[in-house]
Design a protein around this nucleic acid. Structure first.
Lengths: 344, 344
DNA sequence: ATGAAAGCGCTAACAT
DNA sequence: ATGTTAGCGCTTTCAT
C-alpha cells in the first residue's frame, strides 16, 4: 500500500534528473535550483501526490527524525500532558515521537529501548520515576542522546527536567502550619521513586525540630488510591490522629478522602488533606482537593527542547548536564483549612 | 549516534557474507543456514551488540512495521486505554504505534496523516469521533489500510470497532424507568460525534410514546464539564425539573453533579444522574457516578487485530467491511436511584 | 549452504 | 544550474 510514487516518478514527469528533484524539494537545497524548474517539479510532485520517503532519506542522512519516548503508563494522567508537550515541539520540527509504555518494568523498558534503537531513533526522552537504572549508564557509554524527565541519573550524566518538588512540598507545609496544624502525617510513596523521595525528604527537613509540632512519615507500598485509603483508615482509627494528612500524590489523597468519609471524619473541618500533581478532576472531588500543580506540559516541552539542542550539537558536550527545574504552584481548595480549634 | 554496527560488521566478525548473516538472523530464513554457522553468527551479533536497522529493511520489503494511530487528544482519559490495547497486540508482533493527536482539527489530522504516510506506515487506526471526513474517502481511493474506532465511515468502507452505545443507553433508560422515573432529560452531545448521536437517537427511540413518561433531549455544544454544568443549572432552575438526568458522557455528568450540589438538589435523593464511559475516578466522586463502562482497551485490541489481519491479506477484500461491536456494562453506583416518591 | 550482485528511495559529492 | 554516480543497510534473486 501507501504512496508508491517515488522521486523518480516526479523526475520523469518534470523532465529532470532525480537529483534535481531531491534538491528542489528540500528546504535547505531548494535555492540551488532554478526557480522555474523548481516550480515545475513542485507542480509535478503535487499532481502525483508525491510524499518523500523519510525512511529512505534517513538511511543516507543517518537520522530517522524520530524520538523514542519511554513512559511508565499512558493511562496514568500525569503522562499524557507531558507527551503532548513533547509533541508540541517535536512535530513542528518534523520529528515524530515514538511513545512506548514500560509499566515500570525493567524488561519491558529494555525491550522497548532496543526496539526503538532498531528504528534508529535520534534520541530518547525517558519519563520514568525510578531513580536508578543500568540502562541509562549503558546508553551513556554508547553515547546515545537521552533526556530524562523526573528521574535523576546518578549513573549517567544526562540532562534532567523536573518539577520543583521540594518547593511544592514546602508550600504544602507552610500552608498547613499557617493554618494552625501541629500534628501532621505525610503519606509517602516508595523511596525508589525519585519524586516521592524528594517530597518525603523535604517534609522531614522542614518539620524537624519545630517546637510544638508533631510530624510523622508513613511509608506506602504503592501510589494508588487503595494505598492511601488503607493507610488513612489505620491512622484515623488511632486515638490520637493528626489534623492534617499530606499525601505524596493525588490518588493517595483521594484514598484518604474516602477513608475520612467512611470514618465519619469531617474534611476539612476535622481533618485537612492535601495532594500532589493536580490531576484532572481533582477540583471536582468532594471536597475539592488542595494540591500542588505541576507543569506537566511544560516539562515535556523543555525535555524535547533539550534533546533537540543536543542533537543539533548546539550544546557544549563537555560540562555537567543541564537540570531544568520548573516551578510548581500550590492550589488551595476545600480539602484543607484551619486546624480544629481544640487542637491548636 | 545509535548502534553503528551493521550487518557487514557481523559478517566480517563471523567470517561469512552479509547475505548469510541476514538469512541467519531472520526467523523466516534461519532454516536455510547451517546451524553451526548460525550459532557463530548469532554469537558475533550479540558480542557486537548488533541491532538490525528496521528502516533499511523496510526499504526493500516495503514495510515499516509501524502503524499510524490518530487520536483526538491523549489527554482525554478515553484514549490512553485504547492506545494501550492497540500496543498490546502490535508490540508482540514487532510493530510500533505512531501516535498522533489531531485535536479533532481537520488540518492537523491531514498533516498528521501525510506525515505518517511519509514514514510509510503500513496502515492507520483512526480513533476519532467525527462521523464524516473526506480524508477517509481519499485514503480508500489510494487503497490505504485503515481501521476506524468509534466513527463509522459513510464515505469509505473501512472496518469499524465500536462499543454498543445503543445497548448502553438502553440499559440506562431501563434502569431509570425501573426506578420509577417518569420525567427524564438527556444531555446530548454534538450530533457530529458518532457516539453522541447514537446515544441520543437511542434515548429518543426508547422513550418515545411511553405512556406517562416525559423525556426530553437537550443538545450541548460540547462535551466538557462546563457544558454539563451550564445545561444542568438551567434545567434545575425550572419549576418543573426532571427527576433524572442522563448525560452523554461522564464529564457532562460531573458538571451536572456539580450543578445539583450548588442548587442544593439532593443527588440521588431528589435527582438521579447517570454518565457514560466510566472514566477513572468516576467511582470516587461524591456521589459515585452511575455510568456505562466501555471496553476501551479491548476496542484497541480489536482495532489492531483487524488492521493486522488486513495487512496480512488474510481477509477477504471483497465484501462489506467488518464492524465489531463490543459489549458495554451499566455500572449502578450511588448517583442514581429511585425517583422521589412525590413524582412517581 | 553460502557467496555475489542487484536494488529499495533517497541524498551528496563530484562533474559539467 | 543540472546531470552522474555512488552508496546508506538491508534483503533477495541467482549462482555456485
Amino acid at each position: 500500500m501507501a504512496s508508491r510514487v517515488t522521486i523518480g516518478d516526479v523526475a520523469r514527469r518534470s523532465g529532470v534528473h532525480a537529483g534535481t528533484v531531491s534538491r528542489a524539494l528540500n528546504e535547505r537545497t531548494a535555492g540551488q535550483v532554478n526557480s522555474v524548474t523548481r516550480a515545475r517539479i513542485q507542480q509535478a510532485a503535487r499532481e502525483l501526490g508525491y510524499v518523500p520517503n523519510i525512511l529512505a532519506r534517513g538511511l543516507i542522512t543517518d537520522t530517522s527524525a524520530s524520538i523514542g519516548v519511554l513512559v511508565p503508563d499512558l493511562t496514568n494522567p500525569l503522562f499524557p500532558p507531558i507527551v503532548r508537550g513533547i509533541e508540541s515541539v517535536l512535530t513542528p520540527r518534523g520529528y515524530t515521537a515514538l511513545i512506548v509504555n514500560t509499566d515500570s518494568d525493567d524488561l519491558k523498558e529494555r525491550a522497548a529501548f532496543d526496539s526503538l534503537l532498531g528504528r534508529r531513533v535520534d534520541g530518547f526522552i525517558i519519563a520514568t520515576g525510578h531513580s536508578e537504572h543500568p540502562l541509562l549508564r549503558q546508553a551513556h557509554e554508547r553515547s546515545i542522546r537521552v533526556v530524562t524527565v523526573n528521574r535523576g541519573s546518578p549513573d549517567a550524566p544526562f540532562p534532567l527536567v523536573t518539577a520543583d518538588n521540594a518547593e511544592g512540598m514546602a508550600a504544602v507545609v507552610r500552608h498547613l502550619l499557617a493554618h494552625g496544624h501541629r500534628h501532621i502525617v505525610h503519606l509517602a510513596g516508595p523511596p525508589g521513586m525519585m519524586t516521592s523521595r524528594i517530597r518525603a525528604e523535604t517534609f522531614r527537613t522542614l518539620t524537624r525540630d519545630l517546637p510544638h509540632v508533631r510530624a510523622e512519615v508513613v511509608q506506602l507500598a504503592g501510589l494508588a488510591i487503595a494505598d492511601g485509603h488503607a493507610a488513612a483508615t489505620t491512622i484515623l482509627a488511632t486515638d490520637d490522629s493528626p489534623t492534617a494528612l499530606v499525601a505524596t500524590n493525588d490518588l493517595v489523597a483521594i484514598g484518604a478522602l474516602r477513608a475520612a468519609r467512611e470514618a465519619g471524619v469531617d474534611c476539612p473541618g476535622a481533618l485537612s488533606i492535601t495532594g500532589f500533581n493536580d490531576i484532572p478532576l481533582s477540583g471536582d472531588l468532594d471536597p475539592a482537593l488542595s494540591t500542588v500543580r505541576i507543569p506537566h506540559f511544560e516539562m515535556g516541552v523543555h525535555a524535547a527542547r533539550l534533546l533537540l539542542d543536543e542533537l543539533s550539537g548546539s550544546v557544549a558536550g563537555g560540562g555537567s548536564p543541564v537540570t531544568v527545574t520548573l516551578p510548581v504552584e500550590f492550589i488551595a481548595r476545600r480539602s484543607s483549612g484551619p486546624a480544629p480549634v481544640r487542637d491548636r
